[in-house]
Design a protein around this nucleic acid. Structure first.
Length: 275
DNA sequence: AGCCCATCCTGTCCGC
DNA sequence: TGCGGACAGGATGGGC
């Protein structure tokens, strides 16, 4: 479900309400998250009485830091949600974990229809190790020269796959890769190493612009995504190509948006003005 | 090395 | 209305 802009929106919302709050209770509501805990994980009871010190994002991962170097490493995958709600609000069968606080009336819930997501209870050192090994740089922090270098070092990959590869750049998913390539006017089948210097600069600027704009609109809500307060995003109204097969291209107004599969993922683009 | 496909799981939508 | 198949924001691993 969520990509960088959605995860960033969730993290900002959670951070503003939860930093400084002390845990009264943490429990799993269904067996699957508990069963998937990695070796060396902490029991939920370990978290009781600890304050939340920080909440941050790395790529599409969410890291919640508790006192005593305890953490949560959360990935929402396709349908995961992490949101605050009133305790009276009904808990359905897709809600898998619950966190209550002493002072805050609202509770934090982890809900995930397809169960692809994870919530791992680990030591901060383990979390940082996992993240450091698996993820490429942040798209909103990388500089132009490093970006161009990455295009060359993974030059045989198609642009679509290059953008989706979390080890190259962390945080972009299927919606934003299409929107970025449209904004840059680049064909998703092009090889990363084939871009001219000017095209590479265009891609870099499109990436920053699309992601920043999407964050300003609080992400895209296609079906399940909601932010930390359960609100939907509005960037889906600004999508130029994603899920707009058959519609007239908003740039050239000549060709229609088409859909092709790349690596099993639906890819939407304009065959006229994306070369 | 990189592409394609299946896989994890549940829900929705579309055509017959 | 029911049923089967395709598809969905992610990531991984096997085969080619």
């Amino acid at each position: 479900m969520p990509e960088l802009p959605e995860v960033e929106t969730i993290v900002r919302g959670l951070k503003s309400e939860l930093v400084g709050q002390r845990v009264k209770e943490f429990r799993f509501l269904s067996p699957h998250l508990e069963k998937e805990q990695l070796p060396g994980s902490f029991q939920p009871a370990t978290y009781k009485g600890r304050k939340i010190l920080d909440i941050r994002r790395r790529g599409k991962m969410i890291i919640i830091e508790f006192e005593g170097r305890l953490g949560w490493l959360v990935h929402l995958k396709m349908t995961g949600q992490l949101f605050l709600t009133e305790p009276e609000c009904k808990i359905d069968k897709h809600t898998h974990a619950l966190l209550k606080f002493y002072r805050l009336k609202k509770e934090l819930r982890f809900r995930d229809i397809r169960k692809f997501g994870f919530l791992n209870c680990l030591d901060l050192t383990q979390i940082e190790g996992k993240i450091g090994n698996d993820l490429g740089p942040e798209p909103l922090e990388i500089d132009l020269a490093s970006f161009k270098r990455l295009l060359k070092t993974h030059g045989k990959k198609r642009l679509k796959n290059w953008l989706l590869d979390q080890k190259i750049i962390a945080g972009i998913g299927n919606i934003y890769s299409d929107e970025i390539l449209f904004r840059a006017g680049l064909n998703p089948f092009r090889l990363a190493g084939s871009l001219t210097d000017r095209e590479a600069t265009r891609l870099y600027r499109a990436m920053k612009r699309v992601l920043k704009e999407a964050i300003a609109f609080k992400g895209s809500s296609i079906s399940d995504y909601v932010d930390a307060s359960g609100e939907r995003g509005r960037f889906q109204e600004r999508h130029q190509v994603y899920a707009r097969e058959g519609r007239l291209c908003p740039r050239c107004r000549q060709e229609k948006i088409i859909r092709k599969k790349i690596n099993g993922r639906s890819t939407f683009f304009c065959p006229g003005c994306q070369d």
